[in-house]
Simulated assay, not measured.
Amino acid sequence: MANLARFDPFETAVDTLFRNFLRPTFDWDVQRTVRGVIPMDIWETDNAYVVTAELPGVRKENINVRVFENQLVIEAEAVQEKQAGEEAKQLLGERSYGKFSRAIVLPTEIDQEHAEAKHEDGVLRLTLPKRADSVAKRLTVQ
């Protein structure tokens, strides 16, 4: 049975040499997925933006959401908790911990007074109504 290898047309011979040299001590693919950017989806309706952001392992007390004009900032911290006693030795650690944030500029201003945030099952869901006076008016072309 033949082994399959993923081909990356943008990878250089130096990248391959570097990765193979460090393979015994450094898992390249795991390091690419280290938390640093909060993955999110944003939808727009006529009156609001709906944002969902993945925050697995983050307690709602450790999430800070700020809205100012048309800017959204999400800050969070994943805290590592000891799963076993102090005498236990960790054999594998692929989960990432620490502080991270994401800032987004939306096309129109947000009505801060009516914005809502809910956190459930590791997903933050924001409903950000557009300010009535900043919603673009569609003109009829004659």
Rank of each mutant, 00 (worst) to 15 (best):
T25Y: 04
F26I: 00
D27I: 01
W28A: 02
W28M: 05
W28N: 05
D29A: 04
V30E: 05
Q31P: 00
T33W: 02
T33D: 07
V34Q: 11
R35V: 12
G36P: 06
G36K: 10
V37G: 11
V37Y: 11
V37E: 15
I38C: 03
I38W: 01
W43G: 09
W43F: 13
W43Y: 09
T45V: 03
D46Q: 13
D46E: 15
N47K: 13
N47V: 10
A48Y: 00
V50N: 10
V50R: 08
V50F: 07
L55I: 08
L55D: 10
G57I: 12
G57Q: 10
V58A: 12
K60L: 12
K60I: 11
E61L: 09
N62K: 12
I63C: 04
V65H: 06
R66F: 13
V67C: 03
E69R: 13
E69H: 07
E69S: 11
V73A: 10
I74L: 04
I74K: 02
A76P: 09
A76L: 07
E77M: 15
E77R: 14
V79W: 06
Q80S: 06
K82W: 01
Q83A: 08
Q83P: 08
A84F: 12
E87F: 01
A88D: 01
A88F: 00
G93E: 03
E94W: 02
E94Q: 01
S96E: 03
Y97K: 02
F100M: 05
S101M: 06
S101L: 01
R102A: 09
V105D: 13
L106K: 11
P107G: 03
E109F: 12
I110E: 05
I110D: 04
Q112L: 14
Q112V: 13
A115D: 10
A115Q: 05
E116G: 08
E116Q: 14
